[in-house]
Structures are given as structure tokens and as C-alpha cells.
Design a protein around this nucleic acid. Structure first.
Lengths: 88, 88
DNA sequence: ATCGAAGTTTGACGGTTATCGTACTTATGC
DNA sequence: GCATAAGTACGATAACCGTCAAACTTCGAT
């Protein structure tokens, strides 16, 4: 899980999800990588238990598993987003 | 800093330091890598700002920079050690 | 039925990084 | 002084990981 959060692209995905109050589809994230690379990152995040995905038509929606993550790693997401916010 | 904490050996070093109330010299850690590899990890941790080092004779003592780390990344170390403790 | 939009899969490439052994430095103890 | 102990420096090697392009699948719209 920590390993999933090391990559800056994946961190960006997580913080964008955390900042939004709605699910976000894969193609709608603000990331500068190719589609195939994006797919790879979503897979890593999913297998790490950080996000959940479900299809809506051809789009795959992403949900942050906030409470579940907080359960196994209390404080981590807060620490991350707090640090991210401070850097802006 | 997050990147420094990805490696399992370095995480182990950090948690061992956090669990101890005294500084620990490089050779006294419970890690299964060669001396030269250990030196490498200590260097990474030092440059990431996670530890501080000072010599005592021929031994190099390691100190966790607890408060400084908490300052730039509140909650991270707590989350780490809490999670580690839960896994034991 | 056909076309396009959204993702996935696969294979390849490149860079970073963890690892080790060996040789070196420095300090302590005899 | 000399030997030993504790780290460091330096290559070299191997594995991992992020990246992309290309070919493919699937769903929806026209």
C-alpha cells in the first residue's frame, strides 16, 4: 500500500479522488501519461486496496476506499493530503 | 521522504529506531543485508531527512528525527509504526 | 452494421535501485 | 606499531518499475 503511494502519478490520482466528492472515470484525471500507463497505475491502486472500480457504460469509475484505508493505515491519507495541500 | 520509506529494509530501520529509546549504531540493527548495502540505506535515510548520525569512536550512531519528520509529514510515522505494531 | 470512444493487454525498452564483494579508511585496544 | 573492528567508496550485476506503442475488446451512438 505504501509502495502504491510512492509513485507521483498514483499519489496524484489519490489526492484528486480525495478532493472530489464524486467518482472519477479513468480518462478524466489530470495526469500526463498514456492510456496504457494509466491503466497500469489504476491496477496497482486497485490491487493495493486504495480504490474500487465499477463500470458505467464504457467508462470505468474510480472510488477512493477512504474508510477501509483508514482502518488498516490510520492517518496515512490524512498525512498525505495535508502534506500535498501544504505544498501547493 | 516517502520514497525512502518504501524499501522494507529502511522501514525496518526506522521502526527499530522508533521502538528504541536510545540511538542505535549501524551494525546493531536487525537487518539481513551486507555492510555495504546497509551503508547505502543509511545514506538514503539521512539524505531524506529521516535520521541524523554522529560518530562515537568507530561506531556511527543513528537517531530518528522524530519531531522534524512530524513537522513536514504529520501523522506519517505514527501511521507507520501503528501499522507495523498491528502486524506483529 | 458501423464507427468511435474508453480501457485493456502485451511486449519491449530504459532508468533507477537494491544488492554484493573487494578494497580502502579510521579509530580503538593490546 | 599492529591487528582488529566499524564503516565507507566503488564498480558490477540483476531485478524491478514506469513508460509507451500497437493491437485488441466492448459498449454506445448514429
Amino acid at each position: 500500500m505504501l509502495e502504491a503511494l510512492v509513485d507521483p502519478v498514483r499519489r496524484s490520482i489519490v489526492t484528486q479522488l480525495d478532493a472530489s466528492d464524486e467518482d472519477i472515470k479513468c480518462g478524466a484525471f489530470d495526469i500526463q501519461v498514456s492510456k496504457s500507463t494509466a491503466t497500469h497505475h489504476f491496477k496497482v491502486l486497485r490491487e493495493a486496496g486504495l480504490i474500487r472500480q465499477h463500470y458505467v457504460g464504457t467508462s470505468r469509475m474510480n472510488t477512493l476506499r477512504r474508510t477501509e484505508v483508514d482502518e488498516v493505515f490510520p492517518g496515512l491519507l490524512d498525512a498525505l493530503t495535508a502534506h500535498q495541500a501544504k505544498e501547493r
